[in-house]
Protein backbone atom coordinates (compact mmCIF):
# COMPACT_ATOMS: atom_id res chain seq x y z
CA UNK A 1 0.00 0.00 0.00
CA UNK A 2 2.82 2.39 0.89
CA UNK A 3 4.30 1.90 -2.59
CA UNK A 4 1.23 3.45 -4.21
CA UNK A 5 1.43 6.48 -1.91
CA UNK A 6 3.88 7.88 -4.45
CA UNK A 7 1.86 10.18 -6.78
CA UNK A 8 3.91 9.24 -9.89
CA UNK A 9 3.40 5.52 -9.32
CA UNK A 10 -0.27 6.12 -8.52
CA UNK A 11 -0.77 8.15 -11.72
CA UNK A 12 0.88 5.44 -13.85
CA UNK A 13 -1.58 2.92 -12.43
CA UNK A 14 -4.60 5.25 -12.48
CA UNK A 15 -4.08 6.22 -16.14
CA UNK A 16 -5.10 2.76 -17.39
CA UNK A 17 -7.29 1.82 -14.41
CA UNK A 18 -9.71 4.79 -14.76
CA UNK A 19 -11.05 4.01 -18.29
CA UNK A 20 -11.04 0.29 -17.43
CA UNK A 21 -13.24 0.86 -14.35
CA UNK A 22 -15.61 3.12 -16.31
CA UNK A 23 -15.84 0.76 -19.34
CA UNK A 24 -16.28 -2.49 -17.42
CA UNK A 25 -18.57 -0.83 -14.87
CA UNK A 26 -20.89 0.54 -17.57
CA UNK A 27 -21.00 -2.85 -19.28
CA UNK A 28 -21.88 -4.74 -16.06
CA UNK A 29 -24.45 -2.15 -14.94
CA UNK A 30 -26.13 -2.14 -18.37
CA UNK A 31 -26.32 -5.96 -18.38
CA UNK A 32 -27.59 -6.22 -14.79
CA UNK A 33 -30.21 -3.47 -15.18
CA UNK A 34 -31.46 -4.87 -18.51
CA UNK A 35 -31.79 -8.27 -16.84
CA UNK A 36 -33.48 -6.64 -13.81
CA UNK A 37 -35.98 -4.86 -16.06
CA UNK A 38 -36.75 -7.47 -18.72
CA UNK A 39 -35.63 -10.94 -17.58
CA UNK A 40 -36.35 -11.28 -13.85
CA UNK A 41 -39.93 -12.24 -12.99
CA UNK A 42 -41.97 -10.15 -10.50
CA UNK A 43 -41.68 -11.04 -6.80
CA UNK A 44 -44.61 -12.74 -5.03
CA UNK A 45 -44.84 -10.03 -2.34
CA UNK A 46 -43.29 -6.92 -3.87
CA UNK A 47 -44.49 -7.42 -7.41
CA UNK A 48 -42.71 -5.37 -10.10
CA UNK A 49 -41.10 -3.02 -7.56
CA UNK A 50 -38.51 -5.73 -6.74
CA UNK A 51 -36.66 -4.43 -9.84
CA UNK A 52 -35.84 -1.20 -7.98
CA UNK A 53 -33.65 -3.20 -5.56
CA UNK A 54 -31.03 -3.79 -8.28
CA UNK A 55 -30.31 -0.06 -8.04
CA UNK A 56 -31.25 0.77 -4.47
CA UNK A 57 -29.18 -1.95 -2.73
CA UNK A 58 -25.85 -1.19 -4.54
CA UNK A 59 -26.35 2.56 -3.93
CA UNK A 60 -26.92 1.95 -0.19
CA UNK A 61 -23.96 -0.47 0.10
CA UNK A 62 -21.65 1.91 -1.76
CA UNK A 63 -22.83 4.91 0.27
CA UNK A 64 -21.85 3.05 3.45
CA UNK A 65 -18.76 1.44 1.90
CA UNK A 66 -17.68 4.86 0.64
CA UNK A 67 -17.64 6.33 4.13
CA UNK A 68 -15.78 3.27 5.46
CA UNK A 69 -13.11 3.82 2.76
CA UNK A 70 -13.08 7.55 3.57
CA UNK A 71 -12.48 6.72 7.25
CA UNK A 72 -9.65 4.28 6.39
CA UNK A 73 -8.03 6.93 4.12
CA UNK A 74 -8.40 9.53 6.88
CA UNK A 75 -6.74 7.16 9.36
CA UNK A 76 -3.91 6.49 6.87
CA UNK A 77 -3.44 10.25 6.49
CA UNK A 78 -3.41 10.85 10.25
CA UNK A 79 -1.01 7.97 10.97
CA UNK A 80 1.38 8.00 7.97
CA UNK A 81 0.76 11.53 6.64
CA UNK A 82 0.39 10.25 3.07
CA UNK A 83 -0.93 13.22 1.04
CA UNK A 84 -2.53 10.72 -1.37
CA UNK A 85 -4.65 9.33 1.48
CA UNK A 86 -6.15 12.80 2.05
CA UNK A 87 -6.77 13.11 -1.71
CA UNK A 88 -8.41 9.66 -1.75
CA UNK A 89 -10.78 10.73 1.05
CA UNK A 90 -11.68 13.90 -0.90
CA UNK A 91 -12.14 11.82 -4.07
CA UNK A 92 -14.52 9.42 -2.30
CA UNK A 93 -16.70 12.11 -0.68
CA UNK A 94 -18.60 13.34 -3.79
CA UNK A 95 -19.55 9.93 -5.29
CA UNK A 96 -20.32 8.76 -1.73
CA UNK A 97 -22.76 11.66 -1.24
CA UNK A 98 -24.33 11.09 -4.69
CA UNK A 99 -24.78 7.34 -4.14
CA UNK A 100 -26.24 7.91 -0.65
CA UNK A 101 -28.69 10.47 -2.09
CA UNK A 102 -29.61 8.03 -4.87
CA UNK A 103 -30.19 5.25 -2.32
CA UNK A 104 -32.54 7.57 -0.37
CA UNK A 105 -34.43 8.64 -3.53
CA UNK A 106 -34.77 5.14 -5.04
CA UNK A 107 -35.72 3.77 -1.58
CA UNK A 108 -38.41 6.42 -1.29
CA UNK A 109 -39.74 5.58 -4.78
CA UNK A 110 -39.79 1.88 -3.75
CA UNK A 111 -41.49 2.70 -0.42
CA UNK A 112 -44.49 4.52 -1.89
CA UNK A 113 -46.12 1.51 -3.64
CA UNK A 114 -44.76 -1.05 -1.12
CA UNK A 115 -45.23 0.65 2.29
CA UNK A 116 -47.80 3.23 1.18
CA UNK A 117 -45.52 6.15 2.15
CA UNK A 118 -42.57 8.04 0.66
CA UNK A 119 -40.79 8.48 3.99
CA UNK A 120 -40.84 7.39 7.65
CA UNK A 121 -38.54 8.65 10.39
CA UNK A 122 -37.31 5.19 11.36
CA UNK A 123 -33.80 4.12 12.34
CA UNK A 124 -32.56 2.97 8.92
CA UNK A 125 -33.89 5.86 6.84
CA UNK A 126 -32.87 8.51 9.37
CA UNK A 127 -29.34 7.14 9.83
CA UNK A 128 -28.91 7.04 6.01
CA UNK A 129 -30.06 10.68 5.85
CA UNK A 130 -27.51 11.50 8.57
CA UNK A 131 -24.84 9.80 6.40
CA UNK A 132 -25.79 12.07 3.48
CA UNK A 133 -25.45 15.16 5.71
CA UNK A 134 -22.10 13.87 6.99
CA UNK A 135 -20.85 13.60 3.39
CA UNK A 136 -22.03 17.18 2.65
CA UNK A 137 -20.31 18.47 5.79
CA UNK A 138 -17.08 16.60 4.89
CA UNK A 139 -17.07 18.05 1.34
CA UNK A 140 -17.55 21.59 2.69
CA UNK A 141 -14.87 21.09 5.37
CA UNK A 142 -12.30 19.55 2.97
CA UNK A 143 -12.88 22.29 0.38
CA UNK A 144 -12.55 25.03 3.01
CA UNK A 145 -9.33 23.43 4.36
CA UNK A 146 -7.84 23.22 0.84
CA UNK A 147 -8.87 26.79 -0.03
CA UNK A 148 -7.53 28.33 3.19
CA UNK A 149 -4.36 26.23 3.10
CA UNK A 150 -5.21 24.70 6.49
CA UNK A 151 -3.96 21.18 7.36
CA UNK A 152 -6.11 18.30 6.05
CA UNK A 153 -6.06 16.89 9.60
CA UNK A 154 -9.39 18.52 10.53
CA UNK A 155 -11.42 16.87 7.73
CA UNK A 156 -9.53 13.61 8.43
CA UNK A 157 -10.60 13.65 12.10
CA UNK A 158 -14.16 14.43 10.99
CA UNK A 159 -14.02 11.49 8.52
CA UNK A 160 -12.89 9.19 11.31
CA UNK A 161 -15.56 10.38 13.78
CA UNK A 162 -18.31 10.09 11.15
CA UNK A 163 -17.58 6.35 10.85
CA UNK A 164 -19.54 5.90 14.11
CA UNK A 165 -22.67 6.18 11.96
CA UNK A 166 -21.80 3.09 9.83
CA UNK A 167 -22.50 0.39 12.48
CA UNK A 168 -25.59 2.39 13.52
CA UNK A 169 -26.95 2.16 9.94
CA UNK A 170 -26.05 -1.52 9.77
CA UNK A 171 -27.69 -2.48 13.08
CA UNK A 172 -30.60 0.02 12.93
CA UNK A 173 -33.08 -2.57 11.60
CA UNK A 174 -32.15 -4.92 14.46
CA UNK A 175 -32.06 -2.36 17.30
CA UNK A 176 -35.28 -0.47 16.48
CA UNK A 177 -38.72 -1.36 15.14
CA UNK A 178 -38.68 -0.38 11.50
CA UNK A 179 -40.71 -0.58 8.31
CA UNK A 180 -37.43 -1.50 6.62
CA UNK A 181 -36.89 -5.23 6.42
CA UNK A 182 -34.09 -6.87 8.50
CA UNK A 183 -30.81 -7.74 6.73
CA UNK A 184 -31.58 -10.02 3.74
CA UNK A 185 -27.95 -10.98 3.10
CA UNK A 186 -25.71 -11.92 6.02
CA UNK A 187 -22.43 -13.86 6.22
CA UNK A 188 -23.00 -17.07 4.27
CA UNK A 189 -26.80 -16.70 4.23
CA UNK A 190 -29.33 -15.05 1.97
CA UNK A 191 -33.08 -14.64 2.22
CA UNK A 192 -33.18 -13.52 -1.43
CA UNK A 193 -34.12 -15.99 -4.20
CA UNK A 194 -31.24 -17.06 -6.47
CA UNK A 195 -33.02 -15.53 -9.48
CA UNK A 196 -32.64 -12.06 -7.91
CA UNK A 197 -29.18 -12.65 -6.41
CA UNK A 198 -27.24 -12.90 -9.71
CA UNK A 199 -28.38 -9.54 -11.21
CA UNK A 200 -28.01 -7.96 -7.75
CA UNK A 201 -24.36 -9.03 -7.46
CA UNK A 202 -23.57 -8.11 -11.08
CA UNK A 203 -25.15 -4.68 -10.60
CA UNK A 204 -23.24 -4.21 -7.32
CA UNK A 205 -19.97 -5.14 -9.08
CA UNK A 206 -20.75 -2.73 -11.94
CA UNK A 207 -21.69 0.19 -9.68
CA UNK A 208 -18.60 -0.51 -7.52
CA UNK A 209 -16.38 -0.24 -10.61
CA UNK A 210 -18.11 3.01 -11.63
CA UNK A 211 -17.64 4.31 -8.07
CA UNK A 212 -13.95 3.36 -8.26
CA UNK A 213 -13.60 5.04 -11.67
CA UNK A 214 -15.18 8.25 -10.34
CA UNK A 215 -12.84 8.23 -7.29
CA UNK A 216 -9.77 7.72 -9.52
CA UNK A 217 -10.89 10.49 -11.91
CA UNK A 218 -11.46 12.91 -9.02
CA UNK A 219 -8.08 12.03 -7.46
CA UNK A 220 -6.34 12.60 -10.82
CA UNK A 221 -8.12 15.96 -11.15
CA UNK A 222 -7.05 16.98 -7.62
CA UNK A 223 -3.41 15.95 -8.30
CA UNK A 224 -3.39 17.84 -11.63
CA UNK A 225 -4.85 20.97 -9.98
CA UNK A 226 -2.22 20.82 -7.21
CA UNK A 227 0.60 20.41 -9.75
CA UNK A 228 -0.68 23.26 -11.97
CA UNK A 229 -1.04 25.52 -8.93
CA UNK A 230 2.49 24.67 -7.73
CA UNK A 231 3.85 25.52 -11.20
CA UNK A 232 2.02 28.84 -11.27
CA UNK A 233 3.38 29.66 -7.81
CA UNK A 234 6.95 28.80 -8.91
CA UNK A 235 6.47 30.91 -12.03
CA UNK A 236 5.30 33.86 -9.93
CA UNK A 237 8.36 33.45 -7.66
CA UNK A 238 10.69 33.34 -10.72
CA UNK A 239 9.03 36.49 -12.01
CA UNK A 240 9.54 38.26 -8.64
CA UNK A 241 13.23 37.29 -8.38
CA UNK A 242 14.12 38.08 -12.06
CA UNK A 243 16.67 40.96 -12.23
CA UNK A 244 15.34 44.12 -13.82
CA UNK A 245 16.93 44.62 -17.27
CA UNK A 246 15.76 48.20 -17.84
Amino acid sequence: MHGFANPTRFLTLARWLTPLCFGLGLLLVAGALASGLFVVSPDQLMGETVRILFLHVPFAWLGMGGWSALAVSSLAFLVWRHPLAALAARGIAVPGAVFTALSLITGSIWGRPTWGTWWVWDGRLTSMLVLFFLYCAYIALAQAAAREGVSARIPAIFGLLGAINIPIINRSVVWWNSLHQPPSITMGQSAIAAEFLVPLFVSTAGFSLLFGGIVLARMRALIAETQAEARLRRKAQDFDTEPETA
Binding site: T18, F22, V29, L33, L37, E48, T49, R51, I52, L55, H56, F59, V94, P95, V98, F99, A101, L102, I105, T106, I109, W110, R112, P113, F207, L210, G213, I214, A217, R218, R220, A221, A224
Partner: peptide
Protein backbone atom coordinates in the same frame (compact mmCIF):
# COMPACT_ATOMS: atom_id res chain seq x y z
CA UNK B 1 -44.19 3.94 -13.27
CA UNK B 2 -42.30 3.71 -9.96
CA UNK B 3 -39.80 1.25 -11.45
CA UNK B 4 -39.15 3.51 -14.46
CA UNK B 5 -38.83 6.61 -12.26
CA UNK B 6 -36.28 4.85 -10.00
CA UNK B 7 -34.24 3.62 -12.99
CA UNK B 8 -34.32 7.06 -14.63
CA UNK B 9 -33.11 8.82 -11.45
CA UNK B 10 -30.51 6.15 -10.63
CA UNK B 11 -29.01 5.85 -14.10
CA UNK B 12 -29.09 9.61 -14.82
CA UNK B 13 -27.50 10.43 -11.44
CA UNK B 14 -24.71 7.87 -11.86
CA UNK B 15 -23.95 8.81 -15.49
CA UNK B 16 -23.98 12.55 -14.72
CA UNK B 17 -21.53 12.08 -11.81
CA UNK B 18 -19.26 9.84 -13.91
CA UNK B 19 -19.29 12.24 -16.90
CA UNK B 20 -18.73 15.31 -14.70
CA UNK B 21 -15.77 13.64 -12.89
CA UNK B 22 -14.25 12.49 -16.21
CA UNK B 23 -14.56 15.94 -17.81
CA UNK B 24 -13.23 17.70 -14.68
CA UNK B 25 -10.23 15.33 -14.74
Amino acid sequence: SFVIAAYAVGVAGTLATAAWSWLAM
